[in-house]
Computed example of a mutant assay.
Amino acid sequence: MPWNVKDTMSLRQEFVSLAAAQDLPFSELCRRFGISRQTGYKWIERHKEQGVQGLADQSRRPHHSPMRSPQRVVDIVLELRRQYGWGGRKIERRLCDLGHRNVPAPATITEILRRHGMIQPHESALRQHWQRFEHEHPNSLWQMDFKGEFRTLESGRCMPLTIAV
């Protein structure tokens, strides 16, 4: 016996047609399809406005970004990168030194550079300054650290040593 396979669009079309028939209470219909009532009303409204095309997934990308950096700041950031080859932290510091107000954070400046193709992904990977202490096999790496010494109450000395396995 073959599986009863239905794609999302056919399920949404079926939902809208059953809702139009009004044979079941709307809450029960939504429960059977595993959606909230709010989602059910959304599909019905989209079907009324746009027809079958309205049942397709739509982009969730915002229509505008109110917190986006002003274009003049982006232009200055790009020009400093072209002139000196600096990264986000140095450009942020230079903008502050030049007296600019509302300077973006270094991470935002780095993202501006990346968005405009001025930072290549392979270059970023080469500049990673940390390395995890993970190895393929247990006990293949031991790390020890001497923490200095201090006096104890009995006029002795304690020299703590930590070992990470």
Rank of each mutant, 00 (worst) to 15 (best):
H116T: 06
I112W: 00
R94H: 07
R82E: 12
R114E: 06
E134T: 14
V73A: 05
I76V: 12
G87T: 00
H135S: 15
W130E: 13
M118E: 08
R101V: 07
T108L: 02
Q83P: 00
D97E: 12
P104Q: 06
P106H: 13
Q120W: 01
Y84P: 00
G99L: 00
Q71S: 05
M67S: 10
K90W: 00
A125S: 14
Q83H: 03
E111K: 15
Y84F: 06
T110C: 11
Q120V: 04
V73D: 03
G117N: 12
H116E: 09
L98A: 14
W130V: 13
E79F: 12
D75L: 14
H135D: 11
E79M: 15
I91G: 11
R72G: 00
G88T: 13
L113P: 09
E79P: 10
R72M: 02
L80R: 13
R114N: 06
I109E: 04
H100A: 03
E79G: 14
I119D: 05
Q120D: 03
W86K: 10
H135W: 11
R114C: 03
I91K: 11
A105R: 13
R115T: 07
P70Q: 04
W130D: 06
A107W: 04
H122F: 08
E123M: 11
Q128V: 08
R132A: 15
G85F: 02
G117S: 13
E111I: 08
E111P: 07
A125K: 15
Q128P: 00
M118N: 10
S69R: 04
G87R: 07
W130I: 09
L113R: 14
H122P: 01
N102D: 09
G117R: 11
L78P: 07
R82V: 09
V77F: 10
H122M: 13
M67T: 08
R127Q: 06
Q120M: 08
D97T: 02
I112M: 04
V74H: 03
E134C: 14
A107C: 15
R94T: 03
R68T: 06
R114W: 05
R89T: 05
R72I: 01
P70W: 01
R72A: 04
G117A: 10
R93M: 05
W86D: 01
H122K: 11
H135Y: 15
M67Q: 10
Q131C: 12
T108I: 03
R81P: 06
V74G: 05
G85I: 00
K90G: 00
P66T: 08
I109V: 13
P106F: 10
P106K: 13
H100W: 03
H116G: 06
L126R: 09
R82M: 07
E123S: 09
R94L: 06
F133V: 15
A107P: 01
C96S: 04
